[in-house]
């Protein structure tokens, strides 16, 4: 039998959590903020962006708090000069990978990447920019898919699969060639599985999937997956 409750220490604070909780959940439940990007409450954690890394005492590796379960007597640090350095580097790399010119982006002002960059004071990148230009998919009558802004967080894929239940979206190829696809890499308008529900545009943290002709501040709904899953039969 596993214990019903575990005791751990986060940032010097004694905390109780369920053994099935992740470090991130335990932290949030106790008012401790850890920066996240690919994580979205209500969706299966992906562990891809690495922004939520924390130090676990006795473990030389940094752990992603959104995917690592708590265990008894764990001692966790969520904020340190080392962690801040890594988080800044991650943000820089994300900004350098695709074309992130905030001033002309549809998401300017309602973008989670932009918010994080300003919070961490990342106003330039020390790595050289990749910035290959990709064609936009504007074929869908309501939505636009702009690969140039995509950070491959997979939120759209997960919401489409887990909440809407159709799994229209996925990622093709790998590494730097990874890209979001619709069905068998079709133009969005040719999709046979998409129900045009718009959930993908509601959760995209940046300006990569958006509704035509509407400001992003009106169409973004980060709480949607949480709201639905909390009221769904398990």
């Amino acid at each position: 039998m596993s214990e019903r409750i575990v005791k751990l220490i986060i940032d010097g604070k004694e905390i109780f959590a369920k053994p099935t909780d992740t470090i991130l959940k335990a932290a949030i439940d106790n008012g401790i903020q850890i920066p996240t990007l690919c994580y979205l409450e209500g969706l299966t954690p992906h562990g891809g962006c690495r922004l939520c890394v924390v130090e676990v005492k006795g473990n030389p590796k940094l752990m992603t708090s959104c995917t690592t379960p708590v265990s008894n007597n764990m001692e966790i640090i969520t904020n340190s000069p080392k962690l801040i350095k890594y988080r800044k580097q991650i943000i820089e790399l994300l900004l350098a990978e695709r074309i992130h010119t905030c001033s002309v982006c549809i998401a300017n002002g309602s973008c989670e990447l932009q918010e994080l960059a300003s919070k961490f004071g990342v106003d330039h990148t020390n790595v050289s920019r990749n910035w290959e230009r990709f064609e936009l998919d504007m074929s869908h009558e309501r939505f636009v898919l702009d690969h140039n802004r995509c950070i491959l967080c997979t939120r759209c894929i997960r919401v489409c699969d887990e909440i809407e239940g159709v799994h229209t979206l996925d990622i093709k190829r790998r590494g730097k060639d990874s890209m979001i696809i619709v069905d068998l890499d079709e133009p969005w308008s040719a999709s046979y599985s998409c129900t045009s529900c718009g959930k993908c545009s509601a959760v995209c943290p940046v300006g990569a999937i958006y509704v035509k002709g509407k400001p992003l501040s009106e169409t973004k709904r980060k709480e949607l997956p949480k709201f639905i899953t909390e009221r769904r039969r398990r």
């Binding site: 996925d170 093709k172 190829r173 068998l184 890499d185």
Partner: peptide, 25 residues
């Protein structure tokens, strides 16, 4: 080709985009 990927998708009950994702990985 896409025809065979769709066929496999249907037989294994895996969404087409996921089959495509694996094939291109």
């Amino acid at each position: 080709d896409k025809k065979i990927l769709l066929h496999i998708s249907e037989k294994l009950r895996i969404p087409p985009s996921q089959v495509y994702g694996v094939a291109t990985f």
